[in-house]
Amino acid sequence: MPSDAKTASLLRSTPEGKCAYLDADVRDPQKILTQAARTLDFDRPIGLILLGIMGQVSDDEEPERIVAELIDALPRGSYVALSDGTDTSEKLKVAIEAYNTQSANSYHLRSPERIGSFLQELCLVEPGLVKSADWRPDPGSADIAHDQSHAVGAVGQILG
Rank of each mutant, 00 (worst) to 15 (best):
A145G: 11
Q56N: 13
D134P: 02
G140A: 10
L109S: 01
P15A: 12
K91P: 08
A145S: 15
E97G: 08
G153W: 02
G156T: 11
Q30V: 04
D4V: 01
R27F: 03
Q35G: 02
R114C: 07
V130Y: 10
F118R: 03
A8R: 15
L82S: 03
Q148T: 15
L33V: 10
S9C: 03
D72Y: 01
D4E: 09
S3W: 14
S111K: 06
L10D: 11
I96A: 09
R44W: 05
H108A: 11
G17R: 06
D147E: 15
F118P: 00
A5H: 14
D43K: 13
L109M: 09
D84H: 13
R136M: 05
E16Y: 10
L50D: 00
R110C: 06
G17Q: 07
A5S: 11
T39W: 00
A81C: 10
P45R: 12
L119E: 07
R110Y: 05
L122A: 14
R114G: 00
D4N: 00
W135E: 12
I96N: 08
Y79S: 08
A104M: 11
A37R: 00
I158D: 04
L11D: 10
T88Y: 13
E61H: 14
H108D: 01
E97P: 02
E97C: 01
A98G: 01
I49E: 04
Q30K: 02
E62D: 10
D41S: 13
I71Q: 05
R44Y: 08
N105A: 13
I96W: 09
E64V: 02
M1W: 09
L92F: 09
A98N: 04
G128I: 13
H108I: 02
L129K: 11
E126C: 14
G85A: 12
V57C: 06
L124T: 01
N105F: 14
D143E: 15
S117Y: 13
I158S: 03
S141K: 12
Q35R: 00
D23N: 15
G52A: 10
R65C: 11
L159Y: 08
A68T: 11
D4F: 06
Q35K: 01
Q157R: 09
P2A: 14
S58T: 10
R65E: 12
S141P: 06
P15C: 12
S89F: 13
A95K: 14
S78L: 05
L40R: 05
E64F: 09
A142Q: 15
L50F: 02
G77N: 03
N105V: 11
P139C: 11
V67L: 07
D87K: 09
T39H: 01
F118Q: 00
L11M: 11
A145K: 15
L82G: 06
G52E: 04
F118Y: 14
G128Q: 08
S141G: 07
H150T: 01
D87A: 12
D41N: 10
K6E: 08
D84V: 08
D60K: 15
A133K: 04
T7Q: 05
G55K: 03
M54P: 00
Y99D: 14
F118I: 10
G85M: 15
Y79D: 01
D28M: 05
A8K: 15
V94I: 07
H150I: 06
G85N: 04
D59C: 06
G160L: 11
Q56K: 02
L119N: 05
I32E: 03
V152K: 07
S89P: 10
Q56F: 00
S78E: 05
Q35H: 00
Q120C: 01
Y107C: 03
M1L: 12
V125N: 03
P75R: 02
V57P: 07
L122T: 12
